[in-house]
């Protein structure tokens, strides 16, 4: 039973929005969870965080960045086409409780998965302060959506083309220094950003949660590809996470393990481009 793409658009260069018809999953999806998809019979299984869901129309929204072969191939697909496999919701949902003030930090494509979490905190009655950042103004996504669910919204760009010139952590540090009332920080983005966020919040003793995007195969706890070290203990990001206490995560290990298939990713990309150029025989 294939899964139809209802809508597909490029939001900013290399980052795409894809809405998939998956009523069974939409019925159950919650903020913080992810799905795994496979394009076709030769495809790999890749995890994507759920960026939004609509229980009534039975759809799941995912946002992905062109990184390797599979995301490049996905970026070429259009509404009306279908994915062979789409499974979820996977992972534990975010813990949403009335806690007071929550800072939601999203970096790059990480803004998308932060959105439903920010929304859920807002709905739970928390004050939501959001900080979203990107390398440059043209790569910043979902500003309006984030504004709609935030009491305060801060924007940073690495090159200063929009908002504050600098990193999301600069604003976060200022907020922490200026107010003693922040009870929770949620950060999703590149591992290096999440590590920096953990570094900034640690001295303030503010509970900080990150969502880890390690390499997965089945996504149900069967293979252990996604294992991460949290508080000195091996955990599976797929079933024990994907969210963990940022102050306990071994980010160096996470980043090293994410590099594991660098050579193969390059090879797959070259093979894909060759297939595109010369017509695929495989």
């Amino acid at each position: 039973m294939p899964f139809e793409i209802i809508e597909k658009s490029q939001i900013v260069p290399t980052i795409h929005n894809m809405i998939i018809s998956a009523p069974r999953i939409a019925r159950k999806a919650r903020a913080g969870q992810f799905i795994i998809l496979r394009i076709d019979d030769a495809g790999e299984r890749i995890p994507l965080t759920i960026a939004d869901f609509d229980r009534e129309s039975g759809t799941i929204t995912t946002i992905f960045q062109e990184m390797g072969k599979t995301t490049a191939q996905l970026s070429k697909m259009n509404a009306g086409e279908s994915l062979l496999d789409f499974v979820g919701p996977l992972g534990n949902p975010s813990e949403i409780e009335p806690v007071g003030t929550v800072v939601c930090v999203g970096g790059g494509v990480g803004v998308a998965p932060v959105y439903p979490i920010a929304r859920a905190h807002k709905e739970a009655g928390n004050k939501v302060i959001s900080i979203i950042g990107s390398r440059s103004a043209d790569l910043l996504l979902w500003e309006e959506k984030m504004r709609d669910v935030s009491d305060e919204l801060y924007i940073t760009t690495d090159d200063g083309t929009k908002g504050q010139h600098g990193f999301v952590t600069d604003v976060l540090k200022e907020l922490l220094e200026g107010s003693g009332s922040i009870s929770l920080v949620v950060a999703i983005g590149p591992p290096i950003m999440m590590r920096a966020v953990a570094g900034v919040t640690h001295p303030f003793g503010v509970r900080t949660v990150v969502s880890l995007n390690s390499i997965m195969v089945d996504g149900t706890g069967m293979c252990g590809s996604c294992r991460v070290l949290v508080g000195g203990e091996t955990k599976f990001a797929c079933v024990d996470g994907p969210e963990f206490d940022a102050h306990e995560v071994d980010f160096t290990l996470l980043m090293n393990r994410l590099q594991m298939y660098q050579d193969e990713e390059q090879l797959a990309m070259e093979h894909y481009k060759k297939c595109e150029r010369e017509g695929c025989q495989c």
């Binding site: 030769a42 495809g43 790999e44 299984r45 072969k69 599979t70 195969v217 089945d218 069967m222 293979c223 594991m260 298939y261 193969e264 990713e265 090879l267 797959a268 093979h271 894909y272 495989c282």
Partner: peptide
């Protein structure tokens, strides 16, 4: 799982790699 289910032995014709 990589080798059997995902056919990593046919990489890169199949997308999933294995070391």
């Amino acid at each position: 799982t990589r080798v059997n289910l995902m056919k990593a032995y046919q990489f890169p014709d199949h997308d999933t790699p294995v070391k």
